[in-house]
């Protein structure tokens, strides 16, 4: 499965990103953001490479990468599903939606990414769409007034799309 393949490490790409930003310590977060946008997470070898290239100790790069919730050191799924559990969504039963999605994607225990590498399921404190509660986001697209059943249908659709890819554009 190509999605989780981590052997292909294009350091040239990373070097380009660093080249654009320069090696100042204040550039570390923007660089990590761009690298994560490229790889969907921050692979260890790339963090080490950034450390060497920028002259920042690896422990410091690791410290920054683990400090911010936006960074992930684990590979994320192709579809990142965030279930809003802010106050408004919570009182409108966001948790059953979350449970239904986890069950549908086969997640157990502490796992947040499905074995096939398609789905990562997280909660988020508030996406700022309380009027549409309960909401979920999938790769930054907002789905309003969710129910467990509706969420399952959306995931079914995504799974189908993976099995039978259709030209969308």
């Amino acid at each position: 499965m190509a999605l989780l393949e981590t052997t292909h490490r294009d350091f040239a790409n990373v070097s380009k990103i660093i080249g654009r930003h320069g090696k100042g310590q204040q550039e570390l977060v923007p660089i990590l953001q761009e690298v994560q946008a490229e790889y969907r997470y921050l692979p260890e070898e790339i963090l080490s490479h950034i450390s060497t290239a920028m002259g920042i100790p690896p422990a410091t790069v690791y410290g920054v990468a683990t400090f911010y919730a936006q960074f992930s050191l684990e590979p994320k799924g192709k579809y990142v599903i965030r279930v809003c559990d802010g106050t408004a969504c919570h009182v409108r039963h966001s948790m059953p939606i979350y449970e239904a999605i986890r069950k549908k994607t086969g997640l157990r225990g502490k796992r947040i990414t499905s074995a096939d590498g398609l789905f990562t399921v997280e909660t988020v404190a508030c996406v700022g769409a309380c009027g549409l509660a309960p909401v979920i986001t999938i790769n930054d697209e907002v789905y309003a007034q969710m129910t467990p059943e509706a969420a399952e249908m959306i995931i079914d659709a995504l799974m189908n799309r993976e099995v039978n890819p259709v030209e969308t554009h």
Binding site: I56, P57, A59, T60, Y62, G63, T66, F67
Partner: peptide, 10 residues
């Protein structure tokens, strides 16, 4: 000047 240890997580 080595920096083996640092804070991680939060």
């Amino acid at each position: 000047g080595i920096g083996i240890l640092d804070f991680a997580f939060r």
